[in-house]
């Protein structure tokens, strides 16, 4: 049966969307005891793919498997694609052994991005939990690159312990040298820790912003995002001023495998970034 032509299919460079391209590891940094950052460059002479803050790539480790990993680097430097990985499952644990010069497969970038256009002229409250800072870092880079377009920029970042906090040097530098206010907090402080102790939600009542011109972006585990949004709502923020990044099991990243469904949404292509107003009702239902 003849089929009507599909422009996406006949476009050049669109091969099977399931086939990864080889990328070489150009840099590697330990972030903490179980988290590391890999900087990837294409192996061939192809132009680097640009990406939008909040998008992710599928990274393939030869013979082991493939995982979705958020892009954590500067969107102005797509030639060096940073991915911050926490060793949790088989693939990410095996990725811990990767060295500079090794090759991984990459497909992407996929998914929706943080709505930085909608954030213009707004105070932006960035709430991150644990490794949830990684997909927010490209947004912070972007906001700082055109700083004057935005109002007050505040990062509220929580982690288990001071040792779990990612990108600490960069956060300190941003706090000192740019107009990004950084507030860190941990669940358990050590003697050396002089900062906040308590969950990240406890920072929200103390932040200053103009609620009539403010938006919030949240990334972290779902419970943390729900309670952070609740605190922001207590401050008068509407649900459509809040954006969250969802996580679900994912195999294909292109809407074929069905794994990442969240109600009517495919997290891979409709997300991972959603307006909270869209997903809040579903978040209240267990096991969706």
């Amino acid at each position: 049966m003849a089929l009507p032509p599909n422009p996406a299919f006949t476009a050049p460079h669109v091969n099977d969307p399931m086939v990864p391209q080889p990328y070489r590891i150009a840099g590697r940094r330990e972030e903490n005891y179980d988290t590391f950052t890999l900087e990837l460059v294409p192996l061939g002479d192809e132009e680097p793919h640009g990406f939008r803050p909040g998008q992710f790539n599928m990274l393939y480790l030869f013979g082991i498997g493939e995982v979705p990993i958020s892009i954590s680097g500067d969107p102005a430097r797509p030639e060096l694609l940073a991915h911050t990985v926490r060793a949790l499952g088989t693939v990410t644990t095996a990725m811990k052994e990767l060295k500079v010069g090794d090759v991984v497969g990459l497909r992407g970038p996929y998914g929706s991005s943080w709505p930085f256009e909608a954030l213009q002229r707004q105070d932006v409250i960035i709430v991150a939990g644990g490794i949830g800072l990684a997909p927010l870092r490209p947004l912070i880079h972007h906001l700082l690159s055109e700083r004057r377009r935005y109002g007050r920029l505040v990062l509220l970042y929580g982690a288990r312990t001071p040792g779990d906090l990612l990108f600490q040097k960069q956060l300190a530098k941003w706090d000192e040298k740019t107009a990004l206010e950084v507030h860190l907090t941990v669940d358990r402080g050590t003697v050396a820790w002089r900062g906040n102790v308590g969950v990240v939600t406890t920072l929200i009542p103390r932040v200053q912003f103009d609620v009539s011109h403010a938006s919030a972006v949240i990334c972290g585990p779902e419970i943390m995002m729900r309670y952070s949004a609740l605190e922001l709502e207590k401050r008068g923020m509407a649900r459509d001023q809040i954006y969250v990044s969802q996580e679900r099991n994912m195999k294909c990243a292109v809407g074929f495998c069905g794994h990442c469904q969240f109600g009517p949404h495919f997290v891979c292509k409709d997300g991972p970034v959603f307006p909270f107003s869209l997903v809040a009702p579903l978040m209240k239902v267990r096991e969706v």
Partner: peptide
């Protein structure tokens, strides 16, 4: 299934090849 594999942003080339070569 055509809507799933052929009519979105991405196209499943395996499905498409099979689909095109099927007489119904």
């Amino acid at each position: 299934q055509d809507r799933v594999f052929l009519q979105g942003e991405h196209v499943d080339s395996h499905y498409r090849a099979r689909r095109e070569n099927a007489f119904v």
